[in-house]
Simulated scan of single mutants.
Amino acid sequence: MITFPTAPDVRTTPEGLLWEPSARWVRGRKGNIPVVDSRHPVLVWEPRVPVPLYAFPREEVREDLLRPAKHPLTGTHTGSRIFYDLEVDGELLENAAWTFPADDLAGHIAFEWFRRVGRGLDHWYEEEEEIFIHPRDPHKRVDAIPSRRHVRVEIDGTVVADTHHPVLLFETGLPTRYYMPREDVRMELFEPTRHSTGCPYKGTAAYWSWRGEAGVPDTPPNIVWSYPEPLPAVGAVKDLLAFYNEAVDITVDGDRLERPVTPFTRTLPERSPG
């Protein structure tokens, strides 16, 4: 008889939060100071927020480092009841932690992640692996698969990349990204920038902006990115280059793809896809 794993224990609160227990050992630090050490974390999804966060039982949090917030951020984090400032080595980090109003999550405290919002704890670990930006979603999958598809990229009619050796990256909730060998990209049309982003699934990306021969004013900055040291799960994209589907024209095996609408579309002039 074949048996299957039971469905994840996802629960809904009256406030619209989704949450489920996690079996991962999660630790958080501010610098070298341990603040969270939890073997019983829960993952929480807030309404209209595409990525989860962790909340932890109070007994697995250094509550001695928390102070009632002097200037609580009302209206954030789905009606949070209480905000805390975090004091570490004489440094006060405002609104670094909070509690949710849901009865299901009573007795739990959540923390901001510095590399996501610019405040909060700056080092996080699941088991012995450091993670960045936000927790990895157990319901999300990321696959990097080598391919022989013919992929061509154009910007304002100029062919900037053409390859028969892409790696296709399939990520739940996002359009397929086409990573191409550097020799198949006209690198003379781009210039490196100081911009970088972190991804809990892929690693830290470096970026290039379009400069072209005459320039295209409507092309956003940081339109090309690469992972020089990707995480092992997507090692196939190492040093390959991908383009912002939302802002370029991509043709795959002779078919022109429609430009997708994603959470990044509305911020195209301001930021990159991460």
Rank of each mutant, 00 (worst) to 15 (best):
F243S: 03
P52N: 05
D122I: 00
T78Q: 09
R67T: 05
W19L: 07
V42F: 07
E188I: 02
P230V: 05
R11T: 13
R67Q: 07
D184P: 06
L257V: 12
T78H: 10
T204R: 14
A144I: 09
L105F: 13
N222Q: 03
L231T: 08
D255L: 15
R141D: 03
E127C: 03
P260V: 04
T176E: 11
V252M: 11
F170K: 14
D184S: 06
S22K: 05
I250H: 08
W210R: 00
P217K: 05
Y178Q: 10
R194A: 06
D64C: 05
P200D: 02
I223S: 02
V44Y: 07
N95S: 04
L73P: 02
L53Y: 15
V142W: 07
T219A: 10
G120M: 05
R81E: 08
T163I: 13
E213S: 10
F170S: 13
L240Q: 14
R58E: 06
R211P: 01
L43H: 03
H40L: 02
R256A: 14
D218A: 10
P52E: 01
W124Y: 01
H139S: 13
G157L: 12
Y201C: 00
N245F: 05
P101C: 15
M1Q: 13
R194N: 15
S226R: 15
I133A: 06
S38C: 08
V26L: 02
T197S: 08
R259F: 08
W98A: 01
R182P: 07
V142H: 08
V261L: 07
E20L: 15
V185Y: 08
P217R: 12
L121D: 00
P217N: 06
H71R: 08
E154W: 10
V234Y: 09
Y244F: 03
